[in-house]
Design a protein around this nucleic acid. Structure first.
Lengths: 233, 233
DNA sequence: TTTTGCCTGATTGTCAGCAATCAGCAAACA
DNA sequence: TGTTTGCTGATTGCTGACAATCAGGCAAAA
């Protein structure tokens, strides 16, 4: 007899599924920043009522992917340089805590798992599959956070990773030095596996430093609050 | 002609106001953990439709104050020792980042403002107004976060502070050494004012250490997942 | 006595329609 | 010609009613 699994997760409610679909479209760049979202139109396309769409949009607003102007409009949010700076600094703090806790919890099988993911990442980069590499990168950080066994931290981390993806889609941002990326990851997971909490935290926090410093520099220069177009044509 | 002010903030939408009311009741302990919430009953008491109540409950679920079992029930969430450990560790990480950034931004007037709030706190404690003191304590930490000029951090901080309040209400927790509390606050704000980012971060992170260590100890001993009653009588 | 199946009242999930509000345009006016 | 004012179509906010689902009780079968 194969292991049975709860059906609860399958039987997702309509509003959740509607949110899933709209979210995918946003994170794949089909719906660009500033794009207006009409409740009626969405309800027709998704074949659900307007109330259900409203509930879905409210969820996405909580995730920061859309924003509403009361009585007027829903639109896809835009991410500015300031937003990017916020996202990466917050990510550093969260992953720092995660790495610290992970180092305290890590088992031998956990360590093997981390090394396996890092290996996948290495291969993806070596073979030029950069799209895959980005996904595996997130997986690796997610795996470390999982080891922290901290539900709220995991929740916040999922949120911030989604924000990172959101910003990457909108800005077309990609890592520019894959060799350094690999080296940093290797050092981080080895520190976690060694149980060196201080070092693991420091490495996790510094992992985004290149981006944060670049963004801070941009802010000092231009201070352009919202370079991404705010209104759809 | 007196200065006019925007009505936008007043004219809050019905579902937001409904959420505000229910939230107050929960955070004041009127609605204890595990208390069942009926959409129909709430809609009658608040004199709004069930749909509006649903929207309000969805917001509170996002804030972690209530939880729903699909097709079955809404209830006020309970906070366990594990939850408390999560809340305080997360708080440390967030306030650490906040203090670091605040130290980089702080102006002279900011410093005076912080010292004034710390003074209020001192007086409240000396005069035995411990209820007020708790509020001023949160204000002080909020003021530091504000100096970080980091909208997402501020948002997360508001969330985690609400969780702290939620847990305090449910567990009846209160600080036990006010003298140490005062000393720690004083050291923290002086480090921020001095612009010593490293020290400010360290102090902010260690501020919760006493609680975190106590909670970690409790977890190692009992490991009671959910001591707060799960179901209402 | 225990298990199984069914039924029922209660509660949540979804829908379609009415009410409130707004942005933009056009007419009236200075 | 530039500005104000009132109108209008479009869109969101809210409501009441119907559909889907569930927990618990009761009775028949094992």
């Amino acid at each position: 007899m194969t292991k049975l699994t709860s059906l609860k997760s399958e039987k997702r409610l309509l509003d959740r599924r509607a949110a899933d679909q709209i979210r995918s479209h946003i994170l794949e760049g089909v719906l660009p920043a500033g794009e207006r979202l009409l409740e009626t139109q969405l309800s027709e396309e998704l074949e659900v009522s307007r109330g259900t769409v409203r509930s879905a949009l409210a969820q996405l607003a909580n995730e920061g992917l859309v924003q509403q102007v009361a009585f007027t409009r829903w639109e896809v949010s835009g991410t500015s340089t300031v937003d990017a700076w916020e996202i990466y600094t917050l990510r550093g703090a969260l992953e720092g805590l995660g790495a610290r806790l992970a180092a305290a919890n890590v088992s031998e099988t956990d360590g093997m798992r981390l090394r396996a993911i890092a290996d996948d990442l290495l291969h993806a980069i070596r073979e030029g599959r950069f799209q895959d590499a980005t996904g595996i990168d997130f997986d690796l950080h997610g795996a470390i956070i999982e080891l922290a066994r901290h539900e709220r931290l995991a929740e916040q981390h999922r949120f911030i990773v989604q924000q990172v993806r959101f910003h990457m889609v909108q800005s077309g941002f990609l890592p520019n030095d894959y060799e350094e990326l690999i080296a940093e990851h290797k050092a981080l997971i080895e520190a976690v596996i060694a149980g060196d909490a201080d070092r693991a935290e420091k490495l996790a926090r510094n992992h985004n430093d290149a981006e944060v410093k670049l963004l801070a520099k941009l802010l000092k220069q231009g201070g352009s609050a919202k370079p991404i177009r705010e209104k759809a044509s």
